[in-house]
Design a protein around this nucleic acid. Structure first.
Lengths: 211, 211, 211, 211
DNA sequence: GATGAATGAGGATTCATTCAT
DNA sequence: GATGAATGAATCCTCATTCAT
């Protein structure tokens, strides 16, 4: 059921997805849906976003904790983010795009979660600038650039595309470090492979994409 | 009227925006809207997206034509894209996010337009790699990374934020060239300032942002 | 303009015909229509029906007055009715079918007109029965049968069909007299040819028909 | 619900009947209507017309099969048609008048059904003319005259009127045979009484009528 | 005389949701 | 646990009509 929600929200958007549609896609009656998600459509969305952000945050913190070297920290963060986005593209896409569809209360808590997560990047960058590991004129803009670059992965990545998850991770780590002005050679240590969330639909059928 | 549509579509999304709401925001009756946009909501969206993509394409081609040096071409493209996105953030945001809300016919033509535009980046990158101006392992991924990085500007840029349009342009040109592995020193020539589209709402009132 | 109204009312029905549609078909703006027909759609319909009923009544009275012989009177009435219906099929069709679309006041006066007309048939039949010219068990039912038979002409008659107006008139006079149980041989005298109303559209384009 | 639809369609016409109105008349919310008739108004109309035409066709075939004598066949056909029309006047009226309100696909199939039915009359008439049972100059016109005469019954018949169903049947059989020029004395055998369709509203409340 | 702009009311239909079964 | 029935509110859109130009 969650999987069906992820797929439809990703394909058509939250607002454009009907609750009957969700039921049909999940193989249940639309009324039955209220047994499992008493809060209706929005509860489904909240669960999706929270699941994704929780995992991003968990993996991100682990990435930061995996080393003391700012360049390696940044690389690990990017690898983590890109990995999760590539392995769970629909979930990540929904999480990235549907913040505006939430009611104020839910938005508040999830925005806070997202801000927590994004601050990981900010902190690493700032420390790296102080230690001389990075060379950027404006840390703030660098953080935004790197984050959006990574978020984009969820939009275009296709499991059957020309690049593997590992490829994309490696390239984007490189891109991110370049943006940060890091001196090369600080490859991040091998990290645990990105976890496939169980809310991510199996058959990733999306229309357009270009990976 | 178009301006009201841009604002609402950007804030709430196309599907979540009612036609009564559009009327109210434009100060007219919702029925009157059909005098000017016989095609209803979708016609408004199409106009918005086409206007934006047309301008991106026009400015992008001018950017490419402004020099022969790949690094300067890339810089000019990025400056153009970032400039347009920063000066017309709501329009650009809608254009970037609502492709899925279009009916098949309209989607086809607008996707084609977007692909035309994005291929400008691809062509410049490829030529630069051949000429040795750029150093990237995977041109394809580089193009995606740069484009998404630039698209992001529309999401967070605020005219009253801490960075001016020119600042953001300069930084993102730098970021993009770094991603492409360009050797520094090929600053793009000064380009005509980004054009403010007349469909971009005047008072940029958005909820969250961080520039 | 009246002609356009007749055509559309006949093809789609009064209620299903829009006023913009009427304007377009008449080559004018829908607002201009209110100069000529201040009463809107209904005024057009009333004019159509009154024109048709007036002509039926005028010609019917003339038919009755043309002779004293009941069989010839009946024949003349039928020839008149059938002639008018065949020469003005769309007008007659609308007149026959749209009584229910009228507002109460208009309906009252037009129903009265129609009843006046139909009573011509009733009177002739009754006199014929009294004089022994006709042989029917139930005058009332005979009148209804003959009238509906004749009304039907407007539904199926086609100017380019296999039967000419005169043919249909001759056959239906025969049918009517048979229904009334009239002894043959009382051919009605030649009557003035049916008048083509100027509200009847020129190019009689209807979908199905079978004459 | 179907009954309410028949009543309203007969009284006001299909196009002039609102869906809210249908709901109210059926004692349900207009939205509930879509549970039972997913196709909306038109589905209701199609059901009505198909039900009526199916019964006409069934009974008409039985009538033709009930004897070999053309005059008796014609009489049986007329008795059947008139009987059904008199017992289900509203249903028959709608069936006769609303063909034009159907969408092309539905119209096609229902027109085919109607043509099948009407061809029963044509076949009987033609055979009777060949065998010398009938005497008509133009079979085609005779068929049209008889059919319209019979169709008319649905327009004016009232259960509480001055004529019983059996009376009207007997008179119209007589009228029809006269039109066909049949020699008298071929009374049709007694047929099963006309079936009251369960979509025909119970309390036949119509405004004007004259039986 | 003619029209484009404008609108309130209403059109059919779909919505998310509840509830008895 | 699961669902068909039911509905009020909302959807987009079209309606007939008015009026300033």
């Amino acid at each position: 059921m969650q999987r069906a929600a992820v797929r439809l929200f990703a394909r058509k958007g939250f607002a454009a997805t009907g609750i009957r549609e969700l039921g049909t896609a999940a193989g249940i009656n639309s009324a039955t849906l209220y047994h499992y998600a008493g809060g209706g459509k929005e509860e489904l969305l909240v669960t999706i976003m929270r699941t994704c952000l929780d995992e991003l945050l968990r993996a991100g913190r682990a990435a930061v904790a995996s080393t003391d070297d700012p360049a390696r920290q940044l690389g690990a963060l990017i690898a983590s983010h890109v990995g999760i986005s590539a392995v769970n593209p629909l979930t990540a896409q929904v999480t990235d795009q549907e913040m505006r569809s939430l009611s104020p209360e839910n938005r508040r808590s999830l925005v806070a979660l997202r801000d927590d997560y994004e601050s990981l990047f900010g902190a690493v960058l700032e420390r790296g600038v102080r230690t001389g590991a990075f060379h950027v004129t404006d840390v703030h803009l660098a953080r935004l650039a790197i984050l959006e670059m990574c978020n984009g992965v969820a939009h275009w990545f296709r499991p059957d595309g020309r690049s593997s998850v590992a490829d994309v991770q490696a390239r984007f780590v490189e891109f991110g470090c370049r943006v940060a002005g890091a001196v090369p050679g600080h490859e991040p240590r091998a990290l645990p492979p990105p976890i496939r969330l169980d809310i991510e639909p199996a058959d990733t059928d999306r229309e357009e994409a270009t990976a």
